[in-house]
Structure formats: C-alpha cells, structure tokens
Nucleic acid binder design. Structure first.
Lengths: 159, 159
DNA sequence: ACGGCATTGACAGCACACTGTCAAGTTGAA
DNA sequence: TTCAACTTGACAGTGTGCTGTCAATGCCGT
C-alpha cells in the first residue's frame, strides 16, 4: 500500500487523494461501460440518465427541475433533452404555471427505450455487484455521499 | 434507504446502481472543486493531473506511457501535454530509443506550478478527509478499485 | 534482410459538462 | 401597481474525454 502521496498529507488525506484518483478512473470506465450498454438501444449514457429521470418521476418535471435532481447544470440537461425530443423520445407539454418552462413528457417510443434499457441494466448491475457485500457497497456509498455533501457546501457558487 | 431502483435488482445490484449514480455526482463535484483549486495557479484539473504524473515519475515518460498510467486514451493526454508544452510547463526531450515517442520533461516553471499546487492540494485533501475514518476511506477505495478491475476486464477493446 | 504487427504521434470529429450572457416570464415586497 | 429579484430557456464558447484514421517508427519471427 502506498502511504504518502504528497508530503504533508495526514493519513486520511493521503487515503482520500488515492480515493479521488481511483474515482476518476472509475468514472471513465463507467462511461465506457454505459456506452456499450446503451448502444444497442440507440441511446447514450447521458440521454439514458435524463430519460430515466423523466420516466421515473411521478409528476411531469421541467428541465431545470431535472437538472437540480441530477446535480447537473441546467444547460447540460437542456441540450440532452433537445436531442431526446428530436429523436422523438420526449415531448414538451405546455406548463399551465409557467409559459416558458414547459413540462417534459415521455413518448411511447421513449417509454419503450427506457424499458429496453432497464432489461439491460438490471442484469448488468447485478453482475457487477456480485462478489461485493451489500454492506461494503453501502459503506462506500455513504463515503461518496458524505463527500458530495461536503463539496456541495464549500462550492455553492451556483450560476 | 431506498431499496429497489428497477424491479429485478438483487440487493447488491440495487446498492450498486445507487453507488454508480452517486459516483457520477461526485465526479462532477470533484471537477468543480479541482477547477477552483487549480485556477489560482493558472492550471486546470486535467493539466494538473498530467503535470503531476510527469513530475512524480522517477524516469522520463512518453505520452503513451502517462496515458496508460492514468487510464486515459493516448489522444486525451497528448492534447493536454501539448497545452502544457505551449504554456512552457513541459518540454519534449528526444528519446534515444524511439524517434517519434519523445520523452516528457518538466521545466522550472512546471516544477514551480506543481509545487504550488501541492501546497494547495495537501490541506484541501486533509480537510476533505477530516471526519472520515481512514478505515472507511480505504474500504471505499477497495470497492472502487474492485469495480475498476471488473470493468477493465469486461471492456478491454483498446483502440 | 525482409515483412507483418504493435506502438506512437498527429489530426479530425463527436459527446458531454461547464461557464457566461441575454431575454422572457414569474413572484413578492414596497 | 410597479419594480427589483429570481427563475427559466436559449445561445455561444471552453475544457476534457472518446473514437477513428493515417503515417512513421520499432520489434520480432521467418
């Protein structure tokens, strides 16, 4: 086990630095895996995630709402949504409470794509998690969530 | 605690899906934090990471070597390296063993930038890790590394 | 020595997330 | 009611990573 990364790190700081570097690697590998997974359905990881957020919400949401929900910038989601709408997977419904902020609605094709993706994602996630104890995954999850909370507090800039 | 994400998930699969979604969020927040951290030195996260890989290697490396070391595509690192060279932080040294694959050398300015970044990163990482037990961080790290290993095996395509 | 194969750098193009800015719409307090 | 502040969508531009392709180089078996 490598101990120090830069001189001056506490033991926790060194471990954290290692963890962050590993997280970057994981992100890249997850993107690649997501691309393989979504390819056959004609989606991409980002479009699938947005489609999923719309499909799984009980009420119609606006672009800005989905963005906050996913922790992304409004503009990033907007472009993906426009792509999905152009592909006929989402449509815009008028919002009685706001003329500009239209509501997102999933089309039949969108629903079918989402369900196809679900049928692919479930065995994939199960297989990936096989061999790791639930306890370990949940412990790692709470570390990640704790970090997210801390970073969000010290970040908050917002546009 | 939310249990299922999609029907059909095992307990592990559901936890894994949550973990993956949280990892995406973490990645975005880390990028933002990295941008704030590197901004004052005139760097970006990616340039700092590449500079760091060059600075910390005992022997001169080629672009392709650094890319493999970081788990990135050769071309991604190449562009960052070109930027760093244009900024005068890195230079190319002839490689006696290969005419095209030049060796990367860090300049004085590059070294100063790297050390300035170290002085910023160390307290930042220590602060971020404060309040989390080393044991937890290392456990989370091993989960991430295990996932990376699995994803890399099932991925290997390589260009 | 030769020739196939892997590695490498270079260039082009795509996907995705970010920031900054502006105008349209909404909300709430003076 | 009126006006300032916030929210939202739209557009432009940047940084980072990816893939695909090509030519140059090095390596190795025949």
């Amino acid at each position: 086990m490598r101990t120090g990364f830069y001189k001056g790190h506490t033991e926790e700081g060194a471990a954290m630095t290692q963890f962050i570097l590993a997280s970057f690697r994981l992100h890249g590998l997850l993107l690649a895996a997501g691309a393989r997974l979504t390819h056959s359905v004609g989606l991409t990881s980002a479009r699938w995630q947005v489609l999923s957020a719309v499909a799984r919400s009980s009420e119609p949401r606006t672009v800005a709402w989905v963005a906050r929900d996913m922790g992304l910038a409004r503009q990033s989601v907007q472009r993906v949504v426009d792509d999905l709408a152009a592909a006929g997977l989402l449509s815009f419904d008028p919002n009685p409470r706001h003329k500009r902020a239209t509501l997102l609605a999933i089309s039949d094709r969108g629903h079918r794509a989402f369900e196809a993706m679900t049928r692919l994602q479930v065995p994939w996630a199960n297989g990936l998690a096989e061999g790791t104890k639930v306890r370990e995954i949940e412990s790692a999850l709470s570390v990640v969530e704790g970090l997210c909370r801390q970073l969000q507090e010290n970040a908050p800039s917002e546009e």
